[in-house]
Design a protein around this nucleic acid. Structure first.
Lengths: 145, 145
DNA sequence: ATATATTAAGACCTTTTTATCCTTTATTAG
DNA sequence: CTAATAAAGGATAAAAAGGTCTTAATATAT
């Protein structure tokens, strides 16, 4: 569904949001540790998210990553996916055709349509804030035991 | 969503089905040409589909690929996807967690659940026969103009 | 000011996916 | 039986994704 980068990116964002709500800025090391992702690779992904203004980064001692509580309700899953994987999943033909539209649909165009609409709506409506709540109340998890 | 292999595989199956309904056995060359895919790569994918008994192959002059009309109503999109990409898309955690279940869900587990259910149902219920009909009546297409 | 902690950036390596090419095997027509 | 045709299979190559490492830039505390 998503690339590995995107999976790590989403996990990182949810984690950072959760910590930011506790007024804690988190370091790369903490993030990688707590979401069980490769450190250096996660750094790259965070750079990308930072450049897209989805997360704030601060250098130096006591530095790290954080998300303004105000912003995290406005950041959707879809925005993260778009920043990392691009908008292919929102638009591209399910069978990889260059030319696929209502006017010249591929054989699975209509079958995929409603599924994609549901997916897009969900990605768009689900905020990082919302997802961080499950972590907080212990009902969801970002890594194995 | 799917790998390139899987996209070509699905396109090839729909094409072969359509031709088989006209009692035409098709060669690799014809397939690659008509679905606009790389010939040698398509050959590999067809081997895979053939080993999985999703398509019949015949060697030698007048040989090629075909699907028994009786079988093509029983072959679902999902069976093709499973043969080529495995069943990851049906099962794997959306955030790539090893451990993700109802008992220990990832933060997006519930959001993804209904979407995945819809996708699985669609893949399972849509047959190659059905998809070949659109081609036949000219309402769908397997390649660009 | 300096030493230290931390992210940013770019070069590099590894694995997987995508794709090609060549040889072998099977089948058919003549 | 032979020549020709077509898929099967294996080796190889190229491109993309996944991942590491080293150095630079920046901020903090003392």
């Amino acid at each position: 569904m998503f690339s590995k980068s995107c999976e790590y990116g989403i996990r990182a964002m949810i984690y950072i949001a959760g910590e930011s709500l506790k007024e804690r800025r988190v370091s790369l090391k903490d993030i990688a540790q707590d979401i069980d992702s490769p450190v250096a690779f996660t750094a790259k992904i965070l750079q990308q998210l930072s450049r897209n203004n989805l997360v704030d980064s601060v250098k130096g001692p006591t530095g790290g990553f954080e998300i303004q509580p105000g912003r995290m309700k406005k950041i959707s899953l879809g925005a993260i996916v778009k920043a990392i994987d691009g908008d292919g999943i929102f638009k591209t033909c399910g069978l990889g055709l260059k030319e696929c539209s209502e006017k010249r649909p591929c054989p699975v165009h209509n079958q995929f349509k409603s599924i994609r609409e549901n997916l897009c709506r969900m990605l768009d409506e689900t905020s990082v804030f919302e997802l961080s709540q499950g972590l907080k109340d212990g009902s969801t998890f970002l890594r194995h035991k």
